[in-house]
């Protein structure tokens, strides 16, 4: 006898819905409406004697291909669709701003600590590099760990609801810290330890400059790879 896995209607509908959710041109309301329609079709087919699996397959076919539905909905959801298409760019800009804000916060926190602990230039240089490497490795490890466990860590982190408060909070702390730390060019006549502060600031900025160049290079390379992979994927789709 033929062995087969048991058909689960709820799972199949969830799968179908998640495919709709991936599209830019369908609102949540559209998806609920289409889901309700799918259920009506399944109920109707079921009342005619078809089992759940047969009903689902036919109902899904009757509703049509998701891409075709989206094309039609795109005509009425133009504004929504355009906003959705621009969100990735907005997120990209916000991630960049968050990176800069966190960099400044890190720079000032390290400087504040170095001043309080009176660390000399050479030690400070080593510490700043170790800290940068440590933070990068910690971030990448957390990312890798979450990806392995299939947790949406990166997408949660890149969420606008997370990025905006992160930028605001880190900017406020940076602003507060910058008022306390003695920086070059500020009240130079009153600075007893100007030389020390300036050296640390310069060391930190130089290290950061290298770090930013490295991060920028990695981001650009990754973006290029993603862009070409996406282009290749689209080409395969067109030839089908």
């Amino acid at each position: 006898m033929e062995s087969r896995t048991e058909f689960n209607l709820d799972n199949k509908i969830q799968q179908w819905k998640s495919n709709l959710n991936k599209k830019n041109n369908l609102t949540k309301s559209n998806i609920i409406e289409l889901e309700s329609h799918l259920f009506d079709l399944i109920d109707d087919l079921g009342s005619k004697g078809l089992n759940e699996e047969e009903s689902f397959i036919i109902a899904q076919k009757r509703i049509g291909k998701i891409d075709d539905i989206c094309l039609e909905f795109d005509k009425v959801n133009t504004n929504f669709s355009n906003i959705n298409k621009s969100i990735p760019y907005l997120k990209g800009a916000l991630i960049y701003i968050a990176f800069i804000a966190l960099s400044k916060l890190f720079l000032l926190t390290t400087l504040a600590l170095s001043q309080k602990l009176s660390i000399n230039n050479i030690t400070f240089n080593t510490i700043s590099i170790i800290l940068l490497v440590f933070i990068s490795i910690s971030f990448l490890s957390t990312l890798f760990f979450n990806l392995n466990r299939r947790k949406p860590f990166l997408s949660k982190l890149c969420n606008i609801n997370v990025l905006v408060p992160l930028i605001i909070i880190s900017s406020l702390i940076t602003f507060r810290l910058s008022a306390e730390i003695i920086l070059p060019g500020i009240d130079a006549s009153e600075l007893g330890n100007f030389g020390f502060s300036f050296s640390n600031f310069a060391i930190m900025e130089t290290n950061f400059a290298y770090y930013k160049i490295l991060c920028g290079f990695i981001l650009l390379t990754t973006s290029l790879i993603f862009f070409w992979r996406n282009k290749k994927h689209n080409k395969i789709k067109q030839t089908k």
Partner: peptide
């Protein structure tokens, strides 16, 4: 279905 709902909206 792909035709009706956009018309309704």
């Amino acid at each position: 279905e792909g035709t009706l709902y956009p018309v309704l909206h």
